[in-house]
Write a protein that binds this DNA or RNA. Structure first.
Length: 438
RNA sequence: GACCCCAUCGUCUAGAGGUCAGGACACCAGGUUUUCAUCCUGGUAACACGGGUUCGAUUCCCGUUGGGGUCGCCA
């Protein structure tokens, strides 16, 4: 029998990280087993289900590389089938009609629980049992004739041939109902695995208020999909050895439900950032450049006249200082504009010191003579100046850095000068010298 | 409230009776470096509590506490 899992989101416009983590586990599990991973859009709530919301789901899956087998099944297309099953249940006496009053008007179809205890072995939580007296009959078709979640969910899983249902912890109670439904329908139940929730720093359910809770937000912030994937996979699962930074293939090879923990956990943004840096190292310069450009476009910092070669040089120069695509626009804006701000503290510390500007003038004269304007050449020139004047390299480097970048932190100065180019460097130093100090 | 689930450093975790309780992020100290980041070295830091079982419990059992989930004609 081929292993078949599914991701069954209701398209509400956003994909929560808890849900996508469930999708990741389903995907990992089926890929590990050489099985299939299917998608079902639970769009029976017509109010919230829009084509745009469906597109968001599809984009999130694609971005994370969670490829689905076959075409997605839209639950709304299965309505007739759901009702047909309800009729059969009615006919065999497993369900009955009743007007419960309350919300709806008229009769609805209610599934009759078997009156026995129900147990099952959850693949992550172990043996679970619910006593008969704690199991109540429940509605499967509303009085307006529409099927309810429980019915549709079970019937669709049967028609899709789902063998393993891996879903959030919040579904454990439903599982007893679903198991009764499988029995009444006469279909073998799948294996169930319930994942613990992802909680926030307060141990509460992760919500919008806690910052990034949706996949799209991580994407917008410039995170790498493989970093989010890796971090989310490790939230509740571990390969059993000390590996943490892993490729998708390594995770597929190592993934088992047995190694999934059953206690809740929280996503540490700091570690995610670190993870992103780790995966960034594995990407090529061109890929990083493309990601940074997209981030700058979102930040409104991108200009079409930025030279591709220059852009690549800037990124190479920034090196591992880029942990997030959006870092470039935030930390290296001075490479792309003459309007860069001067950091007050750095100016005070490096330019407003006694004799700092005189020294900067000397350095300007030195740099004017450097040709070609390579990192090695400017390095040698300033070292020579340091030796001649008895200054330390630190004394020489800092004023120039602040003058050409406006800040006290950044890439190695000489690499930075080469990338900026002689003309720009000299102009910036002259402009800084001309600025009123104080 | 009822029913169910969970509990190892601040965080993510390894651990399936005998470990100096291991790793990672973060943090601190030192080294490298023109700054920052990287990198290297070292360090601080955990078995929620109380009973059992056992020669021996982080590990097994029970209870307590704390946290979470579910109790819809939502999904």
């Amino acid at each position: 029998m081929t292993i078949r899992t599914r991701f069954a989101p209701s398209p509400t416009g956003n994909v929560h990280i808890g849900n996508i983590r469930a999708a990741i586990y389903n995907w990992l599990f089926s890929r590990h087993a050489g099985g299939e991973f299917l998608l079902r859009i639970e769009d029976t709530d017509q109010e919230r289900s829009t084509p745009a919301a469906v597109r968001t789901v599809l984009e999130s899956l694609e971005w994370l590389g969670l490829d689905c087998d076959g075409e997605p099944l839209y639950q709304s297309t299965q309505r007739a089938h759901h009702l047909e099953v309800a009729d059969r249940l009615l006919a065999q006496g497993a369900a009955y009609k009743e007007d419960k009053g309350g919300t709806g008007k008229g009769e609805c179809v209610i599934f009759k629980m078997p009156g026995t205890d129900i147990s099952f072995r959850d693949a992550v939580k172990g043996g679970l049992t619910k006593k008969a007296e704690d199991l109540k009959d429940f509605v499967i078709v509303r009085s307006d004739g529409s099927p309810v979640f429980h019915l549709g969910n079970v019937v669709d899983d049967i028609t899709m041939g789902i063998t393993h249902v891996i879903r959030g912890d919040d579904h454990v109670e439903n599982t007893f109902k679903h198991l009764a439904l499988y029995a009444a329908i006469g279909a073998p139940p799948p294996v169930f695995a319930h994942l613990p929730m992802i909680v926030n720093a307060q141990g509460k359910p992760y919500s919008k208020r806690d910052g990034a809770a949706y996949v799209g937000e991580f994407r917008e912030k410039g995170f790498l999909p493989e970093a989010l994937f890796n971090s989310l996979a490790l939230l509740g699962w571990s390969p059993g050895d000390d590996r943490e930074v892993m490729t998708r293939e390594e995770m597929v090879a190592a993934f088992t439900l047995e190694r999934v923990r059953s206690s809740p956990s929280q996503l540490d943004m700091t570690k995610l950032l670190w993870m992103n840096g780790q995966h960034l190292k594995r990407r090529g310069l061109d890929e990083i450049a493309a990601g940074c450009r997209a981030a700058m476009q979102r930040q409104g910092l991108w200009r079409e006249d930025i030279d591709p070669a220059y852009f690549r040089a800037v990124i190479a120069c920034m090196g591992e200082r880029i942990r997030l695509f959006s870092d470039l626009g935030e930390q290296a804006a001075f490479f792309f504009t003459e309007e860069y701000p001067y950091d007050e503290k750095s100016v005070k510390k490096r330019l407003r010191k006694e004799g700092a500007l005189d020294l900067l003038r000397e350095e300007l004269a030195t740099l004017e003579a450097v040709e070609p304007f390579t990192a090695a050449a400017t390095d040698a020139a300033l070292h020579a100046l340091a030796a001649r004047t008895g200054r330390s390299m630190g004394d020489l480097v800092h004023p120039v850095r602040v003058a050409v970048s406006g800040t006290g932190v950044g890439p190695g100065l000489f690499d930075m000068l080469e990338v900026l180019g002689k003309e720009r460097v000299l102009a910036r130093i002259r402009r800084t010298l001309a600025m009123p100090v104080g």
